[in-house]
């Protein structure tokens, strides 16, 4: 029997870059290559694994600016607009989330990526026009810093050059 927890935690570190990666994983968790392959397949079929592959650092690849754009959309229109926003290739996420009135009236969130802030703003203009939401209450929240738990590294989100990574104090 395969130990699900061990498999999940070993996989989390990433697939070993060796000629037979699944055999290598099997060795680490006292299982067999076939069991590992079948179990990963099963997790994919069940939807436990959303996708399996490379995870890129988008800032390093030139998408240096990211903004969370939040909208206050009436319940009747939220489905249609959530779908509409998701159709743009620069949008990576479109979710409905709860409002927190009166402080936070926004219920539709999307993430927009771009080469820089102007690029993000141009993309947003395009969305507003195409989805016909001019006049709808929204805000754009640019990120200025981000902190990744793993490795305790601060990254300056808007200037992804050699000076931007520094160890957390």
């Amino acid at each position: 029997m395969i130990n699900e927890r061990s498999l999940i935690s070993v996989l989390q570190k990433g697939l070993p870059l060796v000629s037979h990666p699944y055999a290598e994983i099997a060795k680490q968790i006292n299982s067999s290559e076939d069991e590992v392959l079948n179990y990963i397949k099963l997790m994919q079929e069940k939807g436990d694994i959303k996708r399996f592959g490379l995870v890129v650092r988008h800032r390093k690849l030139g998408y240096k600016s990211n903004a969370m754009v939040v909208w206050d959309i009436t319940e009747e229109k939220v489905d249609a607009l959530g779908e509409c926003f998701g159709r743009f290739d620069f949008v990576t996420l479109s979710y409905r989330r709860p409002r927190h009135l009166p402080d936070w009236p926004y219920n539709l969130f999307c993430m927009i990526h771009g080469k820089d802030r102007d690029d993000v703003k141009r993309n947003l203009e395009l969305m507003i026009k195409s989805c016909d939401v001019a006049g709808v209450n929204h805000e754009i929240l640019f990120s200025t810093r981000c902190f990744k738990q793993r490795g305790a590294i601060y990254i300056n989100c808007d200037n992804d050059d050699k000076n931007t990574e520094r160890a957390a104090v």
Binding site: L17, K50, G53, V55
Partner: peptide, 15 residues
């Protein structure tokens, strides 16, 4: 630093 990881992306809620 172009790639952060190579492996599965888990569906937290489903799991």
């Amino acid at each position: 630093g172009y790639l952060s990881r190579f492996g599965p992306m888990y569906h937290a809620e489903k799991m």
